[in-house]
Design a protein around this nucleic acid. Sequence first.
DNA 1: CAGTGGTCTAGACCACAGG
DNA 2: CTGTGGTCTAGACCACTGG
Lengths: 230, 230
Amino acid sequence: MSFRDWQSVQEEVLRRIHAREWRQGELIPTEAELAQEFGCARTTVNRALRALAEAGLLDRKRKAGTRVAAAPVAKATLDIAIIRQEVAARGAKYGYQLIDRSMMRAPAAVRGAMQVTANCKTLHVQALHMANATPYALEDRWIDCEVVPQALVEPFDTISANEWLLQHVPYTHGDIAISAKAADADEAAHLCCPEQAALLAIDRLTWDGTRAVTKVRLLFRPEHELRTEL
Amino acid sequence: MSFRDWQSVQEEVLRRIHAREWRQGELIPTEAELAQEFGCARTTVNRALRALAEAGLLDRKRKAGTRVAAAPVAKATLDIAIIRQEVAARGAKYGYQLIDRSMMRAPAAVRGAMQVTANCKTLHVQALHMANATPYALEDRWIDCEVVPQALVEPFDTISANEWLLQHVPYTHGDIAISAKAADADEAAHLCCPEQAALLAIDRLTWDGTRAVTKVRLLFRPEHELRTEL
DNA sequence: CAGTGGTCTAGACCACAGG
DNA sequence: CTGTGGTCTAGACCACTGG
């Protein structure tokens, strides 16, 4: 019985965890021991165990060894693409419609989240993304024009801010929050759904270093689902 | 200028992407070339580029080389823990309350998703998770007792099915769907919120091989948010 | 066919943390 | 101090796929 590539080592380790040969919280053999047992290099065992640790199934600590994670925190990965591609991936025809584009002072809540001052120049862009001519998502966005001056001359009438920003503005990291929200009158009108309908909301705040680039809320139609695997 | 560990190689590559030294869709140098430039082994460059490819920033193909991803699909990772731990992590006191536990025929929709027959023995468990004595999440679960016979003798009155299953039943993979749902009368009563309030719903279907183990819907209070980073 | 990434190896040194 | 995982190296072979 020998396992010569890291995938088969990983499978064997997974099998032992599922079969409860190695119990939750229990210490498993060291990399060197497993390498000897499996007849492969320690590097190969390391690759397999590291992948499982990243997936949350193992806890590894120097000197302390490797344990089967007591509470396997599942990592569900959401792929967040440009909305146009998302719609296309569902086999629907993408449509875009600009609702509003204007310089305005952001509400206090938005200024707070973006950490900008009250008189910071911000651009507000609101637009509707459509799939097969029916509403798909409502985008409500604030852009800090001191960070992204190019946005001042971009009309956003044919290309969405969503797409334009991803392609033209670098960022270092972002925060995402997913929640549910009842549709207000305005949102219901744009999304062609009843007022008070339960909408899925994705809020994203994007940073370049220490400065907020943009804050966006995407509201999806009631039946919308985010899908992923475990 | 030399970059001797994979993290610094990764940072340098990231810098060049952000600085647009390497444009979107553009071919970047081969691993061997970069290794020479950076004064390190090809393995080290490989480690850095592989990590960036997993993060969705690079597209790699044998023979075709490595390109900067045209549409950087952001991967947001949600950590899905046992609810008791989730509540504890927020610094609140966890509470648990069983609402219903009974053998019953699952609705057609549930049977379809779990791919079981109409007369399959299924256990229905409904329970409330609480934080600081206020409702936190409503759990509505179906368990296939042919796959998990031990569940038949488990009362689920002090330990939640959520936690018991994770600790006692192995699984191979799962599907997750996140959506928004308006509270019906029953749900509103349990969660102490107005009827029609917008709730965040997480549906999870867990498999062991080709057999469905359990299907669960978790409904969270209106103000609940799932947070993650990019 | 040949260029590129994917992986394995044996050995080495290092960083961290338990005892 | 010592055991464990984390990483780097140089070299090798392989698998895929573009031309």
